[in-house]
Design a protein around this nucleic acid. Structure first.
Length: 647
RNA sequence: GCCGAUGUAGCUCAGUCGGUAGAGCAGCUGAUUUGUAAUCAGCCGGUCGGCGGUUCGAGUCCGUCCAUCGGCUCCA
């Protein structure tokens, strides 16, 4: 007999070799029906795998994250089985579960799988699922594994197996389909009730663009069809928040093929919004000791040779601009830092001057691959809320913390609470990708890791994601469809000061090298506004809304009174407009609601008589009657609450 | 850049078997003078993404380029 400890710390005795499924059955029939896998001493196992010794066991169902993973991983196998049945000879790459569902990379040779095949595969999967095929785990030797896939002719699996250690290789079989797999899997395919194959895409084998591109099929499954319906509904709702759609509807930005792809055009309402964000940050930065600088949009190629950008990115940049007579080469600036380094050098500096903080909303241009462009989040011309801090080595940590405080303040002011802080370090196995000495890199990485430690901020550390001149701390935020984007960034750099030979005179009267911190709390205005739009679904915080209130006269008779209200509001610095169209009030309200105008002020006979306005709040409805002053005061209070309470 | 899909009026979309385009909304004009999510009528609006080809004839078929969308790769 063995002792099984359950999550509530109760201990039950079972015969050795008991399975998760049997434990579930001993608790309740319902649990046994729903159990997908079992966590045994911290490791997720098949619910059908015998447990041979005393263990902590947690039964996993659809309500557990790991239960969902098990289900989706099994679904990937089910899909592969269906594909093998429909397209004999198909070869398989990898087929993992992901955040929302699963995918499998397949190579069907000349018979390309297209969107039209998805319903067929789906139908086959449903058919196989109904058969309640069990997933059977089998340990195999490396030789046995190689022999099997050699015979099958699947070079992808062979490559994967060749990298595995003998004695740790398992196969899973369901129906007639055998796959190399670590597991675990659900007990049988009957658990997979609702199936939706969502999309199809090309994906390079092992993520290497020099290798063959396989067909990746994405899908998601659920134990109940209602849940699938809910999920699809949720996706539809999320699409409505897409900044590309809302940006158009709310007249924030547009693109023109004639101007060029990836080059956003800010419309008046978008420009208004952006200017407000910029003004806000400028105020915060001024208070934090930043000074504004302004630099041109192009720079001599020599500047970028000094910085190292030319060597690293020269070939994948917009082609240089040349002067007609001398043939000098200029690049559209892809970064502001080289220019700022040259500003630092315009005169000698004393340690007493430091830190120096140069800030610029600098517009930069980068050639992004055509397939990468994406609304406002990935563009070829964008404006960074950039600044470079030049400081002594002793000041690095305090300056870094100061920047973090600005980022947090901004995120808080805009209710961005779902961000992930990522620390990006150099890939130690690929040092040639970076410039600078090991010593400088170690100092810079140490500084960031220490600051993270000291501030207690939860971070994710990723190796190989650093900038080529230094490590960084990035603030990542997800868009409406769950895609992660980098917004704010803080980078510690010991290398550019070397390359530009930046100096300051220390208290010892000797020359020293300053340290640079690159930072952009928004990241870029384009991406930030994109994420902001999705975050608030177009309902901007009152202080940012391009139009805060729209006055809706009941009829033409009240236009004069509307004008009066408008001028009173303008005196109180409320941004307002009048809808003078000859439309019914219901129509005007509908349009204002759709434009997400925060307040609608209805004025008619009653209001004119009493010198009042009838206030309706977007998304909420009628708030009742207010005096103009009372309303202006309410708006101002709300703005103060929105902006200052959160500091 | 790669794989796949898509591209028809400002927007959202229809257009059968190849016979030179249609709706709603928006816009304009007029009527209406409107009370908390769509008043009515008329009008304007399209080299059917560009270029080439097949055909008596192409929005429709073929090729190519461009753009957009979903991924992959990349992202100073």
């Amino acid at each position: 007999m063995i002792n099984i400890t359950l999550p509530d710390n109760s201990v039950r005795k079972f015969e050795a070799g008991v399975t998760g499924l049997e434990i579930a059955a001993s608790i309740s029939e319902g649990l046994a029906r729903n159990v997908l896998s079992a966590k045994v001493d911290g490791e997720v196992w098949d619910a059908t795998r015998p447990i041979g010794h005393d263990a902590q066991v947690q039964l996993l169902t659809w309500n557990d994250k790991e239960g969902k993973s098990t289900m989706w991983h099994s679904s990937a196998h089910l899909m592969a089985e269906a594909i093998e049945a429909l397209y004999p000879g198909a070869k398989f790459g990898i087929g993992p579960d992901i955040e929302n569902g699963f995918y499998y990379d397949v190579d069907t040779g000349d018979r390309m799988i297209t969107d039209a095949d998805l319903p067929l595969i789906e139908a086959k999967m449903k058919e196989l699922a109904k058969q309640k095929q069990t997933y059977r785990r089998r340990e195999v030797s490396k030789q046995e594994a190689l022999d099997y896939f050699n015979k099958k002719g699947d070079e992808y699996k062979l490559e994967l197996i060749s990298e595995l250690e003998d004695g740790k290789i398992t196969f899973y079989e369901s129906g007639g389909f055998v796959d190399l797999c670590r597991g675990p899997h659900v007990p049988d395919t009957g658990h997979i009730k609702a199936i939706k194959l969502t999309s199809i895409a090309g994906a390079y084998w092992r993520g290497d663009e020099k290798r063959k591109q396989l067909t990746r099929i994405y899908g998601i499954t659920f134990p109940k069809s209602k849940e699938l319906e809910d999920y699809l509904q949720l996706i539809e709702e999320a699409k409505k928040r897409d900044h590309r759609r809302l940006g158009k509807e709310l007249e924030i930005f547009t693109f023109s093929q004639k101007v060029g792809s990836g080059l956003p055009l800010w419309l008046p309402k978008g420009a208004e919004l952006r200017e407000r964000l910029e003004a806000y940050l400028k105020k915060v930065q001024k208070a934090a000791g930043y000074e504004s600088v302004i630099t041109p949009h192009i720079g001599n190629v020599e500047l970028y040779k000094t910085s190292g950008h030319f060597q690293k990115y020269g070939q994948e940049s917009f082609r240089p601009i040349t002067t007609p007579v001398e043939g000098e080469e200029f690049f559209l600036k892809p970064m502001n830092c080289p220019h700022h380094c040259e500003i630092y050098k315009y005169k000698p500096h004393s340690y007493k001057d430091l830190p120096i903080r140069y800030a610029e909303f600098g517009t930069v241009y980068r050639y992004e691959q055509s397939g990468e462009l994406h609304g406002l989040t990935r563009v070829r011309g964008f404006t960074q809320d950039d600044a470079h801090i030049f400081c002594t080595p002793d000041q690095v940590k305090d300056e870094f913390k100061g920047v973090m405080a600005i980022v947090m303040k901004i995120f808080k002011a805009l209710d961005f609470d779902n961000f992930v802080t990522q620390i990006s370090l150099r890939d130690p196995d690929n040092k040639e990708k970076y410039i600078g000495t090991d010593e400088n890199w170690e100092k810079a990485e140490k500084a960031i890791l220490e600051v993270a430690e000291e501030t207690g901020l939860e971070t994710v550390i990723v190796r190989g994601e650093a900038a080529f001149y230094g490590p960084k701390m990035d603030f990542m935020v997800k868009d409406a469809l769950g895609r992660s984007w980098q917004l704010g960034t803080i980078q510690v750099d010991y290398n550019l000061p070397d390359r530009f030979e930046l100096e300051y005179i220390g208290s010892d009267n000797e020359k020293h090298r300053p340290v640079m911190i690159h930072r952009a709390p928004f990241g870029s205005m384009e991406r930030f506004v994109a994420v902001l739009i999705e975050h608030c679904a177009g309902k901007f915080p009152l202080w940012l809304a391009p139009v805060q209130a729209i006055i809706l006269p009941i009829s033409e008779k009240y236009h004069a009174y509307a004008e009066k209200v408008l001028s009173l509001l303008q005196n109180s610095e409320v941004r307002a407009e009048i809808d003078t169209r000859s439309e019914k009030t219901g129509k005007k309200i509908r349009d204002a609601e759709l434009k997400r105008t925060p307040f609608m002020l209805i004025v008619g006979e009653k209001e004119e008589m009493d010198e009042t306005i009838s206030v309706r709040k977007q998304g909420e409805g009628d708030l009742g009657t207010f005096s103009v002053d009372g309303f202006a005061e309410m708006i101002q209070k709300e703005i103060i609450k929105l902006v200052s309470d959160k500091k």
